[in-house]
Write a protein that binds this DNA or RNA. Structure first.
Lengths: 332, 332
DNA sequence: ATGAAAGCGCTAACAC
DNA sequence: GTGTTAGCGCTTTCAT
């Protein structure tokens, strides 16, 4: 079907290797001007496309990168993916998409990447030891990068958002507005808590009296709603919620309105991610935005560097406050 | 690095081909019980993974399918993609993701797929002749399927939602509720209009007096807002809008609220797609839902069938009404 | 300035 | 039952 290098060479009346040299512009071989032209013409006439397979076999490089992530449906991961793809495509790399719904699927997808012999893997991991062990294993065989999650394994490079900054920015914004009873998900993310604690220290506000941990923690549909119900059962009730994702925050917002509460009059809500869709909520969702496209793009860059054996360092990107209308000031 | 078939054969003390036969369970070769065991043990000890590249080169099959689609960010395409991947993975196929922001990028991505020698392509096309021509071209070289769009080219198989049904369901719902002035996007989609016209005929309602076409047509951020402004300048103003996507509908809803109108009291709005996020809007968005995951899954099935040379037929899936709170009844 | 030939990992037609 | 061998498309060393 598709023309091969042999066909091109034959049509140009040269040997395969000469054709190869011309097509790839490897300076190794000196080729006469008109021979070059003949070869290029032949290639065009035959619409020659170099075979990635032949190359991969010879070079031991597939120019394929696999991405494993939890279901891509409507969170901020599409943006990250978009950035990753942008980066990879510039270097002739392509992206194999692997979504994963649970640990068993994750294991399978790792094997898919092994089998397809990708040159590298980008993973959006789950905060879960079993998962991380599988990642460590994979990283021994394939250059691997984490995105949206900080790696502690030196063999895995990572790009993520500065969690302490997320916490600090959120805490400061709420404290400034007089909130002294704040509900946070207790998902074991100590990084964000550090930021919270720093802000509390700056404001001289007591931690234990002000922070309410909700046990509803991991993202699954309904988690935001459960968090609200948990908080409603506590006393005193919180005046504000800071969720670690916008989807969760929007769910909680919906549930609050559904129950007849007013937002932000009765409860203030602040999300994390900065999804554009939050702008369409009523009230519009105030959020700690994180770079999404850039996060993916940088992950691609670091991974490609790693693949090429260049030294790499983990990267932390900065979040920023997106003020909208879901937080009320309690002052005055 | 990774063990090859040769290594396995050597360790098992057999020839490569015997190893191959055992690994692939091709019945062609009869192999003794214990030879089989020796080979399997060797394979396990070496953690042998068959090389997709070697196979691809030999078989002329990469077991790779490319998907080209407009930016995946937060619409219903992630769901479609999810379905597609589900389907492909069951057969050992993997998905190469190619997003495309304009015609030039689309052309590039087509070339990427050629170069990577994918076995098939799934495309979410744009309603645009130049685009479609490029698709026709690609389809001559690579088995191709459309998803979310009906193909008229017999060489391209397609899975999409029945457009007339979308129109009919929307029209009927609005007409039943007394709406006689409805604003529709004029995007050249005659299929949905057919459904509208059928409903209008059933209700004996005059078409020309009741339908207002808005020239704001193609999805780009802001299109929903522009559509509202266009309608506000007309007289009489429409009482209802039916948008052909939920994103557009949510934008229009936002803009209406922003301008101080009440929805659905002042305007009724009905979307198309059935995104879960529409549930979190205020008011919750009434919509004509289309199967999303299924659409992707079926596209995968049809494409794989096509790749295998089995006969295939275009498929149309049925949309259904998702009643929420953005449409008001004008009766009584 | 150009060509011959080996080899990447795998499969399958053909021996024995 | 099992092995030999050619060849998929490409790169690259070594000759000429």
């Amino acid at each position: 079907m598709a023309a091969t290098l042999k066909d091109v060479a034959a049509l140009a009346g040269v040997s395969v290797c000469t054709a190869s040299y011309v097509i790839n512009r490897t300076g190794l071989h000196k080729v006469g001007e008109d021979t070059q032209r003949r070869i290029m013409t032949a290639a065009e006439k035959l619409k020659y496309q170099p075979s990635a397979i032949g190359r991969a076999l010879k070079n031991g490089r597939t120019c394929l990168v696999g991405a494993i992530l939890p279901a891509i449906t409507s969170s901020f991961l599409p943006d990250v993916l978009d950035g990753l793809e942008d980066c990879l495509n510039r270097t002739g790399y392509s992206l194999i998409l692997c979504t994963q719904k649970n640990q068993e699927e994750f294991r399978q997808k790792c094997n898919v990447l092994r089998k397809k012999q990708v040159d590298g893997a980008v993973i959006v991991p789950e905060k879960n030891d079993d998962f991380l062990r599988l990642c460590d294993q994979l990283a021994q065989e394939i250059p691997t990068a984490f995105v949206t999650f900080r790696s502690t394994n030196p063999a895995i490079v990572s790009v993520c958002t500065d969690g302490a900054a997320v916490g600090y920015i959120g805490a400061k914004y709420l404290l400034e507005r007089g909130h002294r009873r704040i509900c946070l998900p207790d998902n074991g993310d100590t990084w964000r808590l550090q930021g919270y604690q720093r802000a509390f220290a700056e404001f001289g506000v007591s931690w234990d009296k002000s922070i309410l941990y909700s046990p509803h923690t991991v993202w699954k549909p309904g988690a935001g709603r459960e968090m609200l119900h948990y908080a409603l059962d506590q006393s005193p009730r919180p005046t504000a919620f800071h969720l670690y994702s916008d989807m969760l925050a929007m769910e909680l917002l919906d549930e609050a309105l559904e129950l007849g509460f007013r937002v932000p009059e009765d409860f203030s809500i602040i999300g994390t991610d900065g999804l554009a869709i939050g702008e369409l909520m009523r009230p519009k969702l105030t959020t700690i935005a994180q770079p999404r496209h850039e996060q993916g793009f940088k992950a691609g860059e670091l991974l490609l560097a790693k693949i090429d054996g260049r030294p790499v360092n983990n990267l932390e990107l900065y979040p920023y406050l997106e003020v909208r209308h879901s937080v009320r000031s309690l002052n005055a």
